[in-house]
Computed example of a mutant assay.
Amino acid sequence: MLNPKWESIIRFKCPDGEVHYGEPTADLKSARVWTGLDVWSLQPTDTTRHVAEILAPYEPTTIIGIGCNYKGHAHETGIPLPNHPIIFRKLPSSITSPTSLVELHGGDVDYENELCFITSQPARNVLQDNALNYILGFTVGNDISSRYWQRKDTSGGQACYAKSFDGFCPIGPKIVSAKALQNFQSLRITTRRDGEVVQNSNTSDMLFGVRQLMAFLTRGTTLPAGTLVLTGTPPGVGSYQTPPRFIKAGEVLECEIEGIGKIQTEFTEVNSKAA
């Protein structure tokens, strides 16, 4: 559990519709198949398959988000730097693939490119010095948020509700093991909106680093194996631009983090028949 045998892993669909885990090539067009029920039990094979579609790398049952965790983002919001991590939850049903089509639920929809880490085993009272022993790996996440429902005058400022609509948490394209991504606290993080760079920062700007977050989140609390933690977003989100620039139907958003890859999300109006 502590040290996976793979350096990076994807979950993908082959042209024949079969779904596999695999260690991908650099261009993500093919992957060496690994067999197992989940990312903790994988064993390598000698089979290579073509990648027709990349899926969410796994399906977490516990998702924790951290708010205002970049100095630049805290500055653009105008709030004082927090003394402790600001925590919220997202529902598992918000998880979707790294190339998904997402409906604009809730109104005033915004983006948040985030480095995510995944716990490798049940974690409780973890010390910062031992934090990496409890991290399986890292992936890219987009903490999509309805600012309408996040406002105090519309929902009392309930971030969980505003961030948990279906599809509001695309992740991927792969999980990179903690052993293979040792510079996770100095990675370039970039967001492009229809090709325009809107977020351009570095994970070194975090107020509370990955090790600190692991220690804080597990104080007297057991995080189950497979917990997904979104570690916050840098400055440049749409709601704090002048004037605010919320996502519109037809726009494509790319969230990229150095050493992991990028997820690409296209947005569409809510299907009223299915709503």
Rank of each mutant, 00 (worst) to 15 (best):
E7P: 05
E7I: 07
E7S: 15
I9K: 07
I9C: 10
F12Y: 14
K13Y: 04
C14G: 06
P15A: 04
P15N: 06
G17E: 09
G22N: 11
K29L: 13
A31W: 09
I54E: 01
A56K: 01
E59T: 10
T61H: 14
I64M: 06
C68T: 13
K71D: 05
H75V: 10
L81T: 04
D110K: 05
N113Y: 10
F117V: 13
I118F: 09
Q121V: 05
A123F: 11
N133G: 06
N133C: 03
T139C: 12
S146W: 09
R147S: 07
Y148A: 11
W149K: 12
K152E: 15
T154C: 13
S164R: 03
D166E: 12
D166W: 02
D166G: 03
G167K: 02
C169D: 04
G172P: 01
Q182A: 13
I189Y: 04
I189D: 06
I189P: 07
T190N: 10
T190W: 08
Q199D: 00
N200R: 01
N202S: 01
F208P: 07
Q212S: 12
A215M: 11
L217W: 06
T218E: 09
G220W: 02
L223T: 00
P235T: 03
I247K: 09
I257K: 06
E258N: 04
I260T: 08
I260G: 05
K273M: 09
